[in-house]
């Protein structure tokens, strides 16, 4: 027996999927070399030539990366807002981006990023992100407890320390290094390495599957840790696993694509406003919503000042913020969600 709400969720999922597809097609066709929708299939069949190269080597990897990063960041935001029971938490609140940025800055300043080629920057970003996660978890999970508010504060403090350390590095280094650091921080989906794209893609999907197993416990956690316990949910266990999933996803995204802000904060809220707080939909909705948003933002970033490219963070921040305020006002008087 299908509930009205389930039908609504399925319909909504279908709509976002179509939107993702549409955005992907738009992204495939627009750019410096315009390839019309009709030409895509013949070009792909031909398997050679300039246009084939542009589609498969430049645009498709970018779309896949945007899909994965947008989805993963938005999913992480939805998860973290749930376990911290705080609507203002986003993937970067816990200092993961700060740690990654510091790692990258350190690599650039010390010059080690020339040593093992293009893997070095993502790797140092990942090491930075992992160190932050380790520190937050160790301090937060200390003595068997899970004091989520303490973890949140520790994360915010680590974030401050990391960004101050990074500013220190920036102020003592050369102009060239400085440019490299700033360029990385602003975030970009321009990632030539196929392996990194694959890793990001599969881990984002794995994150979605794992967190979905905890969709109903997350719903119970809406009522607080004590009540969730009374409903048979091991809150501590759930919070730890989900925290690790969300922070790993964030760490991977930041290492590969830099600091792309706002996706993880705004998209889960938009989905919540439209379809409600039930995590059985919120997780999927946030993921696909984030994917759509980032693919579209990337198209805008690539074309708006063509032939130059805007940092994608500029688009996500401005578009996301304005969109959110509009939607918030529109839904302010909502009677009920969804069904």
């Amino acid at each position: 027996m299908l509930q009205n709400r389930t039908i609504f969720w399925m319909g909504f999922t279908l709509v976002i999927l179509l939107l993702v597809l549409a955005a992907a097609l738009l992204s495939l066709t627009t750019g410096e070399a315009s390839i019309s929708l009709r030409d895509i299939i013949p070009v792909l069949k031909e398997k050679e030539g300039m246009e084939y190269f542009i589609l498969t080597e430049i645009r498709m990897p970018r779309i896949i990366l945007a899909f994965a990063v947008g989805g993963a960041l938005s999913l992480s935001g939805a998860i973290l807002q749930g376990i911290f029971r705080n609507p203002l938490v986003e993937p970067y609140t816990l200092g993961i981006s700060g740690g990654a940025a510091f790692g990258v800055a350190l690599a650039i300043v010390t010059g080690v990023h020339f040593t093992i080629g293009m893997f070095m920057l993502p790797l140092s970003g990942f090491v930075g992100a992992m160190s932050t996660i380790l520190l937050v978890s160790l301090l937060g999970f200390l003595r068997g407890g899970t004091d989520i508010n303490k973890m949140l504060l520790i994360g915010v403090m680590i974030s401050f320390v990391a960004s101050s350390s990074m500013m220190f590095l920036m102020s003592v280094t050369t102009a060239e290094n400085l440019h490299g650091i700033i360029f990385w921080i602003m975030g970009s989906l321009d990632e030539p390495n196929r392996l990194l794209i694959k890793i990001t893609f599969y881990s984002s999907l794995a994150g979605l599957v794992i967190s979905y197993l905890f969709a109903r416990p997350l719903n119970a956690l809406l009522l607080g840790e004590d009540k969730a316990g009374h409903l048979g949910i091991n809150s501590r266990h759930t919070i730890r696993i989900l925290f690790l999933v969300a922070s790993l996803l964030t760490g991977i995204c930041v290492s590969v694509a830099g600091v792309i802000g706002f996706v993880g904060l705004v998209i889960p809220h938009l989905i919540r406003l439209i379809a409600g707080s039930d995590y059985r939909f919120l997780l999927i909705g946030s993921f696909l919503g984030g994917s759509f948003f980032l693919i579209l933002s990337d198209v805008i970033a690539r074309t708006i000042i063509s032939p130059n490219e805007l940092p994608i963070g500029v688009i996500t921040g401005m578009a996301g913020g304005v969109l959110f305020i509009i939607v918030l006002n529109k839904f302010r008087n909502r009677k009920q969600y969804g069904a």
Binding site: L223, G276, S277, Y337
Partner: peptide
Amino acid sequence: FPDAADIT
């Protein structure tokens, strides 16, 4: 004090 969440 039941915790009222944003759910139906």
